[in-house]
Amino acid sequence: MTDARQAIESEIKSNDVVLFMKGTPQFPMCGFSGQVVQILGYLGVPYKGVNVLDDESIRQGIKEYSSWPTIPQLYVKGEFVGGCDITREMFQAGELQQLFVDNGIAVKQTA
């Protein structure tokens, strides 16, 4: 297994919520990553931000790992949830909040 894949799997397995993104939660470097950061911030969900711009092998590896061509990518309890569009759609439908609650992850606001 490649280093990138190992690094990805260890992040996903050791954190309940992981957001592979461009930039950091404090400084998102892409509008789409920033949208997901805002949603997670609004819900007050603790998560691990992984800046794919720091490591090209992670940036490509994550796309192969989930067979999803773009960044950001949200993972909850090891499961790929979606990119920016899907996360936003789920948030607007209340499904994202439900997903967190179902996985025992505290959510501050239920929108």
């Binding site: 796309k63 067979s67 999803w68 061509p69 773009t70 790929f80 949830v81 979606g82 990119g83 569009d85 899907i86 759609e89 789920m90």
Partner: peptide, 18 residues
């Protein structure tokens, strides 16, 4: 939803993200 979006990305034959 993820599967639906992947179907559209597949239709775009790798251009998505490129």
């Amino acid at each position: 939803r993820v599967q639906q979006h992947q179907m559209v990305y597949a239709a775009l034959q790798g251009r998505m993200g490129g």
